[in-house]
């Protein structure tokens, strides 16, 4: 079973939910398809969606909601 990482394209704050009261975009164990949004990165007063980029099953997040992230940092891994 190969694993692939989903990396943050940007530095900023990573959020797993579209708004504080919403459910997370994805939970650990969910399947993902390439176009699925898995979170947003806040930087320069705007929010940028992060898409999975690959199809896979069983996503597992490597960072918490509202964590500071660097560009290129792995946000989650999925079993391809």
């Amino acid at each position: 079973m190969s694993k692939a990482e989903i990396k943050s394209p940007l530095p900023g704050m990573f959020y797993r939910r579209p708004s504080p009261d919403s459910a997370p975009f994805k939970n650990d164990g969910d399947s993902v398809s390439a176009a699925d949004v898995i979170g947003v990165v806040e930087v320069m007063k705007s929010f940028h969606e992060v898409t999975a980029g690959i199809d896979g099953k069983a996503i597992r997040f490597l960072v918490d909601d509202a964590d500071a992230v660097m560009a290129g940092q792995a946000l989650a891994e999925v079993e391809a």
Binding site: K7, P9, L10, P11, M70, A71, G72
Partner: peptide, 8 residues
């Protein structure tokens, strides 16, 4: 370009 490393 690849991912940003240092700087902005």
């Amino acid at each position: 370009f690849g991912f940003l490393q240092t700087g902005a």
